[in-house]
Computed example of a mutant assay.
Amino acid sequence: MPPLLLLLAVLLLSSTANGYPSTCSNATCGDLTIAYPFWLNSSSPSSCGYRGLGLACEGNTTLILPAQSHHRYRVSYIDYDTRSVFLVDDAEAEALNTTTCPHLHFNFTIDASSALHLTRSDSNITFFYNCKRNASSPSAVELTGCPDYNGSSYAFTGDGYTGAADEYGCEAAVVAPVLDAHKKAMVEAPPASRYVEVLKGGFELNYSPHSVQCGACERSGGWCGYRHNQTHGGPGVVGFACFCDGGPTDDQCESTSGQNYS
């Protein structure tokens, strides 16, 4: 190869190497592909994708989305064409081993700044536990075999029942998202197992194509992510980074003319 072409090839490889980190390439966990804007949280010190979309691969087989209070949701499928991710409550797996009374402990919540949000495909099942008074609502179905409870426990398949927990003197109320199609089909299942099977089917979240911080970066041709800040706050501080062909920046990539894209 002529020396000039060899020099250009070296410069091109160097530019690419300084852009999107090699740890940000697509990865696999079991039979699932992890691609932008998701990323493996083991790819530290560079996190490649949206904040809150870091996934953990356990045993090279199980993909986990950590949530609030160290709660865990197992990722069953990611559809990058429709920007959908399907989750099952992994932390409640023991509760779903029962066939009579799924004893859930956590309400699913999404932070307002998250790129994730529930979809029209989702619905809710509300569970009341250890109620002192009988639920008078026609939508209430009494659960049997609930451990450690002297009072009655119920499941509601509609929306807006959480406030009634105080009316019935219930110890706890938990709202669980489920796929609406699964909930509508569960009328054909035996009463003892119908709720468990629907919960095991999980639910769907969509992720936004742009976040506020990532939007400018992506429009400028970059990939958003996070890295340890070496200049402000020390190496222990993680800050936003826009990965560009010429290397990471703090906001967005520059055009060939030296101007930033709007």
Rank of each mutant, 00 (worst) to 15 (best):
N206M: 05
G221I: 07
P191M: 02
Q213P: 06
G201Q: 05
E197Y: 04
K183V: 01
L179D: 14
K184R: 08
G169R: 08
Q213E: 15
Y207R: 05
K183Y: 02
A176K: 01
H210W: 11
K184D: 08
Y207L: 02
S193Q: 10
A216F: 09
V178E: 00
Q213R: 10
A181Q: 09
E218G: 01
R194I: 04
V187S: 09
K200S: 10
S211N: 01
G225W: 12
E171Y: 09
G225H: 10
S193L: 09
V175M: 15
A165Y: 02
P191C: 02
E167I: 12
C214E: 13
W223T: 09
N206Q: 13
S220R: 06
V175S: 15
G225K: 03
H182A: 01
G225S: 12
K200L: 10
S220A: 13
A173I: 01
D180F: 07
L179V: 04
A192N: 14
G215A: 14
S193N: 02
Y168L: 01
D166P: 00
G169E: 00
V187C: 05
P177Q: 11
E167T: 15
S208N: 12
Y168H: 02
H182C: 00
P177D: 10
C217S: 11
A173T: 14
G222C: 09
E171W: 03
H210F: 13
A181M: 06
S208A: 15
G215Y: 03
Q213H: 07
S220G: 15
V187G: 06
K200P: 03
A173W: 00
C214D: 15
G215Q: 10
F203M: 11
D166G: 07
V174F: 01
P209T: 10
C217W: 01
P177H: 09
L205V: 10
V212C: 03
